[in-house]
């Protein structure tokens, strides 16, 4: 038993060390091989990963390091001094926090918008046809918590449609809602159009007529402490330019 405990303790100590290795991967010889660090909302994972490949292809010797997470998580990391060059938020509120703390260089630019949609498992076990069904206490309904962007959007949407949601769980992020639906644990959930599109055949989508009234706008900005301000501006141009917009549109994002 003692031996197992020792092995476990050793493993527990080594794991974080292995994780540290990634942070050290930033090359100190920045003028030879430059690394652009992009912090972006989790919902941008697919599109920004694709754009990063294009950026690396057109900028020789440049590596794009992407870090995805909940917008408010990323904001607190940046406020605590995380070495990021660019930040793309899933809502204006979190970007405003950074602007208020003078951590942004120049003005943020809106580059995309997203709306909500109902998703159900492919066989739609709860027979969900409209937002009204999400008020049914007998159905397993999952939404984001009001404290996170997708949750405050869900609340606004419910208010606009005059529906009182009866959620069985208020999740921390939109991806948590999506997994609860794709795994069949929930009968219905409210996610962004882009998440529903990304899930493909794993979900069925049900449009909500009032969704167009509740739009989440995505701003992007170069950070005040950016180590690569030039590359950071190039990145913002790529995202807001024709090429970036094409990729975003294909993933289901709308114009800002």
């Amino acid at each position: 038993m003692k031996r197992l405990a020792t092995v476990a303790a050793a493993a527990a100590l080594l794991l974080p060390l292995a994780a540290c290795g990634n942070d050290d991967a930033v090359d100190p010889r920045a003028d030879v091989d430059s690394t652009l660090v992009v912090y972006a909302a989790a919902s941008l994972k697919g599109t920004f990963t694709e754009l990063a490949k294009e950026f690396e292809a057109t900028n020789d010797g440049v590596t794009v390091q992407l870090s995805f997470g909940g917008s408010s998580d990323l904001v607190s990391q940046i406020s605590e001094g995380a070495p990021a060059d660019v930040f793309a938020s899933a809502d204006e509120k979190n970007m405003d926090t950074l602007v208020g703390d003078d951590l942004v260089s120049g003005d943020p630019e809106d580059f995309a918008s997203n709306t909500l949609v109902i998703v159900t498992p492919p066989d739609n076990p709860g027979d969900v046809t409209s937002l009204d069904d999400l008020a049914d206490p007998d159905l397993d309904v999952v939404v984001c918590a009001p404290q996170v962007p997708c949750g405050s959007a869900a609340q606004k949407l419910a208010t606009a449609a005059g529906v009182t949601l009866a959620p069985d769980s208020e999740e921390q992020s939109v991806t948590d809602v999506l997994t609860k639906v794709t795994s069949g644990e929930a009968d219905a959930g409210l996610v962004y159009v882009t998440d529903a599109k990304g899930a493909g055949d794993d979900v069925r989508t049900v449009e909500v007529p009032q969704a167009s009234e509740v739009v989440n706008t995505y701003p992007i900005a170069v950070l005040a402490d950016a180590k690569q301000p030039g590359l950071a501006r190039d990145w913002v141009e790529l995202v807001t330019g024709a090429q970036g917009q094409k990729v975003l549109r294909a993933a289901g994002f709308a114009r800002p």
Binding site: A145, Q147, S169, Q172
Partner: peptide, 26 residues
């Protein structure tokens, strides 16, 4: 958070509440 979900009074225990509050009210 993986298995039970998160709903006030039903499944949102103290650690889950801390994690959620961190979003808006550190």
């Amino acid at each position: 958070i993986t298995f039970a979900g998160s709903l006030q009074g039903v499944t949102r225990t103290l650690p889950l509440e801390i994690y959620l509050q961190r979003e808006t009210d550190p």
